[in-house]
Nucleic acid binder design. Structure first.
Lengths: 288, 288
DNA sequence: TAAAAAATGAGGCAGACATTCCATTCCAGG
DNA sequence: CCTGGAATGGAATGTCTGCCTCATTTTTTA
């Protein structure tokens, strides 16, 4: 029997990907019950890694002995060796993302030259994206997009550090043919611009600590006119939050004193494109 | 004994972070051998997740019974329950970078609602950061920073989609007290602005396909005046590359027709802060 | 310093574990 | 329809597991 195994399968898969490939390769030539386990293993790799032969067999609806036969058919000498591969996968997999970031941060802190600075900004951006991806509330997103989609004109309000985001929103809205107005400070005509806004319009306001006083004042004045505000800011204590109908908390990581804009940008683009889609859908429905 | 446990620690940590905090909190009040295990556990969480009580105890240099006492002191009823927490951590931990991105992309493509759009932008940003982190050439970065650090005034040139990056560069340069001039198109005075630039200055130009004709023309005219250009663009065929002394190829992933700006932003910030550092260093050296 | 309490080490035990073995079932080929 | 061989189920087995107990050592308290 050991001879058979040796001849039919000299190389035992040592990493998960190879194992996976091997299983998929032989899928059709496997006996029914063995195939059943094979499918279960690829679908629930975590269970294989943590479970006992008995518990796994029960979950997969087979006998424990079948599980062992499956392992042996793949060239392992038992279930335990097969399990090692699934465990190794978890070990390696888990380190990768965090280690990646940590490595970047380490290079950024300890590294020499300007590459370190660059790595620092990449790490900050990655961290920010990671965070927002975890924390963003879907319901808020839906609310904000509904609110903005109904607006006649979308006003975009941001100063200083947040201004690049505002300008990108304005660019994207323009490309999507959505009427919008970027409130810039250049000519000092902001008060007049804001005066045109009505409750049928809406505002996207972006501000992070230290909150630009001009932004705050303009946000207050525009909210007093009954214009609904969607705010992107950095904490629930932000003065911007109190003016807003819907607000997002975005925690951007910083490096060398400059905060990343990646998370804010991603959110801004989602809002913009979301509004575009919503309008198109509504338009379609109206036509029908 | 169970009474003791119940009184001293009613809430058993159920997730790894809580457990970690609990251990660190009590670190100093723990007996020697227990502390030894505690340290080992936090340093080698994977070993706790996969090992047996005996193997872990051996690795940590204690008796298996101590391991169990450690678990009980934390409120668990045995090693097995403690181990569950370590296993859960592995299950729930973020998946590897690639799997993560794949999951995001899958959600973005298959998912419903506007969350899918958001995930798409996050995925695009992550991909872009990943790519640039791999492909960026350190030497180019050093060259560009050297070139820019010598400039009397840094002109920043970008239109349309690239404009948000330019405005962020201008903001950051301003904060670092580096003289700069953002070439905007508002008043149509660009030609005049460009006329002031001399070979002692430098330009950061950013443009992606389809290259804004205005940017190209301005880049050409300014390079004809002998002003060195650092370009950020998307391919070696970019017309911008031919005018530039140093140029970076940045491949931004796109979603829903809008390209990410994350990679460009990270590079832009690295250039900006790099110039700031270089000037500070040079200033110091001069003083000495 | 003596007594009490806590911490530690080590062996033993019941139960769970992976694995093996054998009886039974299934299926292809004659 | 039979028959040989593979596939499968299920119980038996021996190892290893976590956990408990108790003797010993160390630390704390009076």
């Amino acid at each position: 029997m050991s001879l058979d195994r040796a001849t039919m399968d000299e190389r035992v898969p040592r990493d998960f990907e190879t194992l996976r490939a091997t299983i998929l390769d032989r899928r059709e030539s496997l006996p029914k019950r063995i195939a059943q386990i094979a499918a279960y293993a690829l679908d629930n790799p975590d269970d294989i890694a943590f479970g006992t032969a008995a518990s796994i067999a029960a979950s997969a609806g087979v006998q424990p002995s079948t599980l062992i036969r499956f392992a042996q058919q793949l060239g392992f000498d038992g279930f335990t060796s097969l399990q090692q591969v699934f465990r190794e996968r978890l070990r390696e997999r888990n380190s990768s993302y965090d280690e990646r970031l940590q490595a970047l941060r380490a290079k950024a802190e300890g590294g020499a030259g300007h590459r370190a600075i660059f790595d620092g900004f990449v790490a900050a951006a990655s961290t920010s994206l990671n965070d927002i991806s975890r924390t963003l509330d879907d319901a808020h997103l839906e609310d904000a997009i509904s609110l903005l989609a109904k607006a006649e004109t979308i006003y975009v309000l941001a100063k200083r550090r947040s201004y690049p985001v505002a300008s990108y929103i304005a660019y994207a809205l323009g490309k999507l043919k959505i009427r919008n107005q970027l409130i810039e400070s250049a000519a000092g005509l902001n008060a007049e611009m804001i005066g045109f806004a009505t409750p049928a319009d809406a505002v996207i306001a972006i501000s992070f600590s230290p909150y630009a006083p001009a932004t705050m004042e303009e946000a207050r004045s525009i909210s007093e006119q009954g214009v609904p505000i969607v705010a992107i800011t950095d904490s629930s204590f932000s003065p911007l939050a109190q003016f807003a109908k819907v607000w997002f908390e975005v925690a951007e990581a910083d490096f060398a004193g400059f905060r990343s804009l990646s998370a804010t940008m991603a959110l801004a683009m989602a809002l913009t494109v979301g509004v575009g889609e919503k309008r198109r859908d509504t338009g379609r429905k109206r036509k029908i």
